[in-house]
Simulated scan of single mutants.
Amino acid sequence: MIQIEVKTFEELTKKELYEVLRLRSEVFVVEQDCVYEDIDGKDQKALHVVGKKDGEIVAYTRIFKSGDYTDEASIGRVVVKRNQRKYGYGKDIMKDAIHAVHDYFEANVIHVSAQMYLERFYHELGFKQVGDGYLEDGIPHIGMVRKS
Rank of each mutant, 00 (worst) to 15 (best):
V112I: 11
K91G: 10
V50G: 01
I39H: 06
Q44E: 15
M94R: 13
E106A: 12
E31W: 13
A107N: 06
T70I: 07
H99V: 12
Y36C: 07
G51R: 06
V30F: 04
Y89N: 04
V109T: 12
I110N: 02
V109M: 11
V50W: 00
G41N: 08
H99P: 08
V50F: 01
K81N: 03
E72N: 11
V79N: 04
V58L: 05
D103H: 15
A107Q: 09
K45W: 04
S74T: 10
H111P: 02
Y60G: 00
G51V: 07
N83P: 12
E106Y: 10
R85K: 07
L47M: 10
M94C: 10
V30N: 07
K65L: 01
V30C: 05
R62H: 03
A100I: 01
Y87R: 11
T70L: 09
A73Q: 04
T61G: 07
Q44M: 14
S74H: 08
N108A: 11
G55H: 14
V29T: 09
V80M: 09
V78Q: 04
V101D: 00
V50E: 00
V29K: 15
E72W: 13
I39P: 02
S74D: 03
V80L: 07
V78C: 01
N108W: 09
A97G: 04
Y87W: 07
D71K: 15
K86P: 04
H102Q: 14
V27R: 11
G67M: 07
I110H: 02
F28K: 13
D40P: 04
Y69C: 11
K95R: 14
A97E: 03
Y87T: 06
D38Q: 13
S25R: 13
Y104C: 01
M94I: 12
D33F: 15
E31I: 11
F28L: 10
I75N: 00
V50Q: 03
E26D: 15
D103W: 10
V49C: 00
S25F: 09
G55F: 08
G88Y: 06
Y87Q: 11
V112F: 02
T61A: 14
E31R: 12
V35A: 14
G67K: 12
A59M: 05
K42E: 04
V112M: 03
D71C: 08
S113M: 08
V109K: 14
D54C: 10
V35H: 13
L47C: 05
R85I: 03
V101L: 01
D92Q: 12
V109D: 09
I63L: 03
H102G: 09
R77L: 02
V30Y: 08
N83F: 05
C34Y: 08
K45I: 02
D71Q: 12
V80T: 05
D71Y: 12
